[in-house]
Structures are given as structure tokens and as C-alpha cells.
Design a protein around this nucleic acid. Structure first.
Lengths: 211, 211
DNA sequence: TAGATTGTTAATCGATTAACAATC
DNA sequence: TAGATTGTTAATCGATTAACAATC
């Protein structure tokens, strides 16, 4: 495995979408699918589907198409879903609690094992079977448990500090919900969510279409 | 205003980010900024910044740069922030409640005026000063109030039905949090959020970097 | 075998970056 | 005026689409 040419981020971002569609096909007991058929379901070109998949290997068969279950599992592997990432949530406010309740993450290979806050009123409370722990005990917790990803839902003013703390603990990924771009001098991979950015794009599209 | 060439979505998606950085500059009492300086803060090229802004007009001045407050207001206008979009939230579960508490939307020009659910245990409850209304009364509410955007946080199995209902009411935009792509035969603009897609991309990046 | 559909190369399209004349 | 920095055109780069030989 000498050369693994880096796959572009545009392709990576489409993988979860393929995964969702394949999951739906499985639920419908559809066992094979051609790039043409999938393209009409997803609203993208068949050519793009074949190009995307071929970044990772030849999963199809000429004259037949793709085996749905096989392709589903291949994409799961590419995305690391079978590795079962372990996550913690920092900030047990509304967004943190919403994330703790989100059943879909578990299905996608992400298991929440800890939930932290500084608010004494929240500490000790059970959220979806998970006790809110004192943020003070974060370091101890991480030393005792493998934590791959921290989900960050603390208020704006604590975001940077919390992110640095997480980075120093050697956690590999940060899923950042604070409205601040976080770029840190650490190895940690950061994915900024920025919900209001998405809402503002929607606002623009509405303006453009209806005015 | 005969020809208004359509601005690419890649540019639009960067506007909220410019807006955030300009907001930060204002807070720091910085009154002017060059594309070069902004580029180093944001980690993108100065050339791209100038190209992006010039899609909408020449907001800068040779030899001087850009006036921060002026540019901030121009972007606010482009994004429609001053139009003050009115929104409702469908689904008062954890995510719906989290959105109802999110203070940032108001600052960005989005005002939540209604919150709906079908669960009798939730109806009547006050969330951040907003009473949870019976989903049955949605049509009546929309006939009496201008609603621009519906935020959809109902469970998967009710998402499509709720989306169609909203579309038939003539609401212009749908901000979809259900893990299902919604594409409907209506004029309504749809922005799919797909939180777990973003998390899966993070998982991939971690795998790629640390394995 | 004939038909279907992939894997892959080539062509096109669009987005980003570089360069520089215009001008404050 | 000299220096700085924009607005804008041209060059480059990368991503998408088209085409088709390979092959099931």
C-alpha cells in the first residue's frame, strides 16, 4: 500500500449521503443498484457516483451494478463506522442535551460515554441514561476512558478554553457547535458546525427566489 | 437592474463567515481592514475575498481597504438580515427546544414566533418565553402571522408529512433537521442540515490523520 | 452470445489564485 | 506625489461530466 492518493473533501462529504441512501435501499429489500438508478434517486450524475466510489476501489461489477449490502458495508468501513468512535459532550445545556438524546449517532458508530458541565444544578442529573459529570473531573475521566471525539456545546465565552483543554488531553477530534471558528495549534481535527451560517444561507436563498 | 448574474453558492456560503469576522472586528474597534489583513485572519486568500465581495459591488477603496462597519452592513443586507425573517419550530423535543433557546438567531435576523408539537405533555409548556402550541393549530397560526421559515425537528417518520404541510401553507423556507433528504414538488426552499453527516466527516478525517 | 453497466480516460466546466492597471 | 490596495482580467487548478473500451 505504497501510494494512497488523498481523496478530495468534496468526495468525502458525499459519502454519508450515499450511506443514507444505501441504508434506505436495504430497508426496502433492494439488493442491487446501478449507478444510473442511484443517480436518479439522489439527483446527481451516475458518472459522479462511479468516480466517487472508484476513489476507494472497484465495488461494482460490469453489467450488474453494485450490491447494495456490500457497498453499504464498504462505505461504513471507509467512514470508520465500525471503529465505534467514543465521544463526550462538553456542555449539558439545551444543545448538549439534544445531542445526548440523538439516537442516530449510535447507529452511525458514535457512542457517547460522558457528558460534562460546570453548573451545579445540572451535575448529577441523568440525561438519556447519562449522568452529567463535573467538568472538573474531565481529565480524570479521559485518563480512564478512551475518548476519540469531544462535542463542544459550551457558551461562546468558554469555547476556546474548553477546546484547548480537550486538545491538550490528546483527544483526536472536536465537533464544535460554538459560533466561533476554532483553529488551534494542535493536531486535533476540528469540524465547525455553525448552525446559524446554514440558516443565513437559507435566508439568502429565500430572498433570491421570492423577491 | 437588467442583468443580475447569479452568484455561485460557494460564494454565498462564505458570506456568513465574513459577517462573523467583521462582527468580531467591530467589537475590537477596528474600523478599516485590507483584504490582505482579513485573509490572514481567516486563512483564505486575499484574492478570494476581493472576488467574493465584488460579486455584489465595489465596497472597498484603492489604497485604503474596506470600511469594516460599511462592509458589515452591506453583507447584512445581502443576506437579508435586516428583513427580519419570522420563523416557527415544528417539534418541541430536545432539538426544537435547543433551537428555541439559541440566542444567536435573533442577532442574525431570525425571530422565532411559534413552537409546535403534537405531544399533550409538551403543549402549553413555556420554552424560553414561547408557549408550545398544538400542531393542530398550525394552519390557523400561519393564517394570522407572517411565517417565512419553518425549522423542522420532528421525528424521522413525521418529517415528510410535516414538510408537505408547511409547503402547502406557502411558507418559503424549510430548515430540515431530520436525517432525511427532503425534496418536494413545491417552490419552498429547503436547507438540509444532517448533523450526523458532519460528524461522520469528522470521523473520516480522524481516521485519515491518526491511522 | 447480446445487453448492461462498470472503471477509467478525456473533455468540459467552474472556482480559485495570480497578476496588474486603475485609483484612492 | 509615492505607496497601498482595490477591482478585474487572465492563468491555473480542481471537480464534474461525457465517452467508451473492458468485461460481467
Amino acid at each position: 500500500m505504497a501510494s494512497k492518493k488523498k481523496v478530495s473533501i468534496a468526495v468525502i462529504k458525499r459519502l454519508p449521503r450515499y450511506y443514507r441512501y444505501l441504508s434506505d435501499l436495504l430497508l426496502m429489500d433492494i439488493t442491487r443498484i446501478s449507478s444510473k438508478e442511484l443517480s436518479s434517486r439522489m439527483g446527481i450524475t451516475a458518472s459522479q457516483i462511479r468516480q466517487d466510489l472508484n476513489c476507494f476501489g472497484g465495488f461494482g461489477q460490469q453489467g450488474y451494478g453494485y450490491n447494495v449490502e456490500l457497498l453499504y458495508n464498504e462505505i461504513a468501513n471507509i467512514l470508520g463506522i465500525n471503529d465505534r468512535f467514543q465521544t463526550i459532550i462538553l456542555g449539558a445545556g439545551n444543545m448538549g442535551q439534544a445531542l445526548a438524546h440523538y439516537g442516530n449517532f449510535e447507529k452511525r458508530g458514535f457512542k457517547t460515554i460522558g457528558l460534562f458541565d460546570i453548573d451545579p444544578k445540572l451535575i448529577g442529573k441523568k440525561i438519556n441514561g447519562l449522568e452529567v459529570l463535573d467538568m472538573e473531573t474531565l481529565e480524570e475521566f479521559v485518563s480512564k476512558n478512551r475518548v476519540d471525539i469531544a462535542m463542544l456545546t459550551v457558551p461562546y465565552e468558554h469555547a476556546r478554553e474548553a477546546a484547548e483543554r480537550v486538545a491538550r488531553l490528546g483527544i483526536k477530534g472536536l465537533w464544535n457547535f460554538s459560533p466561533m471558528d476554532l483553529r488551534l495549534p494542535y493536531e486535533m481535527v476540528i469540524e465547525n458546525v455553525h448552525l446559524s451560517d446554514s440558516l443565513m444561507v437559507l435566508g439568502y436563498k429565500i430572498k433570491e427566489k421570492f423577491e
